[in-house]
C-alpha cells in the first residue's frame, strides 16, 4: 500500500529516521558510506533519528523511516507497529528487512536446539522461532534489496522519497547487468555455477566481473525459473546438497528461493531429477 504524499516538501525538510532490527548494521553503514553525498543529504533532509550516527533525537512523526533488519524477538514485533504508526513512508533496506536475511535460516531448523548450541543458558534469551521480514508485520512502501544494499540504489530511493516519486529500481535479473557491463557469461564460458538468471539486478553484476558465479544476495528477480536453473546447476556438476545450500543463504525465506531449496532436501530429490 502506498500512502498518498503531499510531496515535494516546500515548507520544511523531510524528517528521516533509521531503525535497526536483527542485522549486521551493513545497510545503515551504506548510508554513512555515501561520503560525497552525506553532508549535502543532511542539508536536504533532517536526520531525526539515527542512533548509529548521532545521540540527537528529534521526536516523530517521521516522513521517511528506513528499516534495517528482520523481526526475531517479541519486543521487535511491537516496535515495528509503533514505527509504522509514526512514519509516513516505511522503506526496508536490505535482505534482512525484506526477506528475513541470513538469520531466517532458523526457520528451517529447531530454534530450541539452536539456542542450546550457542548459549549455555537458553532460558535467558528472548527470541522467536522464525525470523520474518518487516512486510510480514506492517505495510511497507518500498523494499530495497541486497545483502548489502547498493549505495547508488539507496540514494535513488531517498531522492524519490523526498521528491514524492516512484524510485527507479529495476526488477530484472543480474544477467541483464552482465550484458550491459560486457561481462562474458561465467556459466556459459567457464561452466561456473551462477544464480544470475534468477537473481534481481542492483549490485552491478559484481561477482561475474570477478570471475565468480552470482550467489543471489539481492534475492529473486521478478519471475525466476528456479527449478530450470537448478537442473542446469546439476549439469554443471553441483550436487543436490549444494543446490539446497546455494538457494538457502541471505534470502532463504523469500518464497521462490525457499520453495526451490525445499525441493532439494534429502529424500525429496526424486521429485526434482525427473
Amino acid at each position: 500500500m502506498t500512502v498518498p504524499h503531499s510531496y515535494p516538501y516546500s515548507e520544511r525538510k523531510p524528517k528521516l529516521a533509521v531503525w535497526k532490527f536483527a542485522s549486521c548494521d551493513g545497510c545503515q553503514l551504506t548510508l554513512l558510506n555515501c561520503e560525497d553525498e552525506l553532508i549535502p543529504l543532511a542539508g536536504q533532509v533532517q536526520i531525526a533519528y539515527f542512533p548509529e550516527a548521532t545521540r540527537a533525537v528529534v521526536d516523530g512523526p517521521y516522513d521517511v523511516s528506513l528499516v534495517e533488519g528482520s523481526v526475531t524477538t517479541p519486543d521487535e514485533v511491537e516496535r515495528i507497529q509503533r514505527i509504522r504508526e509514526i512514519s509516513r513512508q516505511v522503506i526496508t533496506i536490505g535482505a534482512c528487512a525484506t526477506s528475513g536475511g541470513i538469520q531466517a535460516l532458523r526457520n528451517f531448523g529447531d530454534v530450541a536446539e539452536f539456542r542450546s548450541i550457542v548459549y549455555a543458558h537458553p532460558e535467558y534469551l528472548s527470541t522467536l522461532a522464525r525470523a520474518t521480514p518487516i512486510s510480514a508485520h506492517v505495510s511497507v512502501d518500498f523494499e530495497l534489496r541486497g545483502c548489502p544494499i547498493n549505495k547508488r540504489q539507496l540514494l535513488e530511493v531517498l531522492a524519490a522519497a523526498i521528491q514524492g516519486r516512484k524510485p527507479r529500481i529495476p526488477s530484472y535479473s543480474v544477467c541483464v547487468e552482465c550484458k550491459r557491463r560486457g561481462t562474458v557469461c561465467v556459466a556459459v564460458a567457464n561452466g561456473t555455477p551462477c544464480l544470475g538468471p534468477v537473481t534481481q539486478a542492483g549490485c552491478g553484476a559484481l561477482c561475474p566481473a570477478f570471475a565468480r558465479g552470482c550467489y543471489g544476495c539481492f534475492g529473486p528477480q521478478d519471475s525466476p525459473n528456479t527449478s530450470s536453473l537448478a537442473d542446469r546447476l546439476l549439469s554443471l556438476g553441483m550436487r543436490q546438497g549444494d543446490i539446497l545450500r546455494i538457494y538457502r543463504t541471505f534470502n532463504a525465506a523469500s518464497e521462490p528461493f525457499r520453495r526451490e531449496s525445499e525441493r532439494h532436501e534429502p529424500g525429496r530429490q526424486s521429485a526434482v531429477s525427473s
Partner: peptide, 15 residues
C-alpha cells in the same frame, strides 16, 4: 539486547 542470530548453530551442515 541486540537479538541473537545463532550463526554458530546454522553453520552446522554448511559446506
Amino acid at each position: 539486547y541486540e537479538p541473537p542470530r545463532f550463526y554458530e548453530a546454522f553453520l552446522r551442515g554448511r559446506a
